[in-house]
């Protein structure tokens, strides 16, 4: 099984520990993982701003970087969703090979246990693109049999206490350039999500997308709240130092 590691541009630059956790987690599960060195961005920021056409070269670059891999795994539901869509537009075989890390662990690897420990009260932020785009879990709007891939994995972690939220999968208001172009609403949405986690006693907010967590973290730090954010791969990989 040849695995290509896709690390979103902002994770590469600002959250290397998330890339490291993803890589280590996959290696611990016995996989051979390579990180192609010339990757940059999937093109989603441009596309969501109305400049989808500008991403054409970026998708070509992605294909070149990852063409020899059967699976491409990334720690982001949002980027993976965008890649899947764009790759299927250009009829690339990679469209079916790109996975968000949690769905890869549950659906392809059938992971049943993880040796990690994380003795904290954790609130899960269900990032929308992973949730509603990739169906990492059943969105609260739908009358379907409930499933929850990130939750299934987190429940394998020793000592973890998952908190219930009042609004279990409401958007945090990051939304890419939305966070800046609709600053006021974005900040209000994020603040309200934090309040929900806070009211329900979360010490750590985790999720499948560092971008949403970056937005929440920015608010938490400005508001001097004693809640930390961690990417789900960090917890699954056993990083239990809450900074």
């Amino acid at each position: 099984m040849k695995i290509g590691l896709f690390i979103p541009c902002y994770v590469d630059q600002f959250y290397p520990q998330v890339g490291i956790a993803t890589l280590q987690l996959l290696e611990k599960l016995g996989l051979e993982v390579n990180y192609p060195l010339n990757q940059t961005c999937c093109g989603q920021p441009m596309a969501n701003s109305g400049f989808e056409y500008k991403g054409e070269n970026l998708i070509k670059m992605f294909e070149e970087n990852f063409q020899k891999y059967q699976y491409v795994i990334g720690p982001s539901g949002s980027c993976v969703m965008h890649l899947k869509e764009q790759l299927s537009h250009v009829k690339s075989h990679l469209a079916d090979g790109v996975f968000e890390i949690c769905e890869f662990l549950t659906d392809i690897l059938n992971v049943k246990e993880l040796p990690s420990e994380f003795p904290y009260r954790v609130g899960v932020h269900s990032s929308c693109h992973g949730l509603r785009g990739l169906r990492l879990a059943t969105p609260s709007e739908l009358n379907e049999n409930p499933s929850d891939k990130p939750g299934t994995l987190l429940k394998m972690i020793k000592g973890i206490q998952l908190v219930d939220l009042n609004r279990k999968d409401e958007c945090c208001g990051f939304g890419g350039t939305f966070a800046v172009s609709e600053e006021a609403v974005s900040v209000k949405m994020g603040t309200d999500r934090i309040r929900d986690h806070e009211l329900n006693g979360a010490e750590v907010i985790t999720g499948t997308d560092m971008s949403c967590l970056m937005h929440l973290d920015g608010l938490l730090k400005r508001q001097k709240k004693n809640i930390r954010v961690m990417h789900i791969t960090e917890i699954l990989n056993g990083n239990n130092e809450v900074k």
């Binding site: 969501n48 109305g50 929308c128 969105p139 709007e141 958007c171 939304g175 939305f178 609709e182």
Partner: peptide
């Protein structure tokens, strides 16, 4: 652009 594209509306 007045949307985070969260997709809840569609659901």
């Amino acid at each position: 652009f007045a949307s985070s594209l969260c997709g809840s509306c569609t659901n």
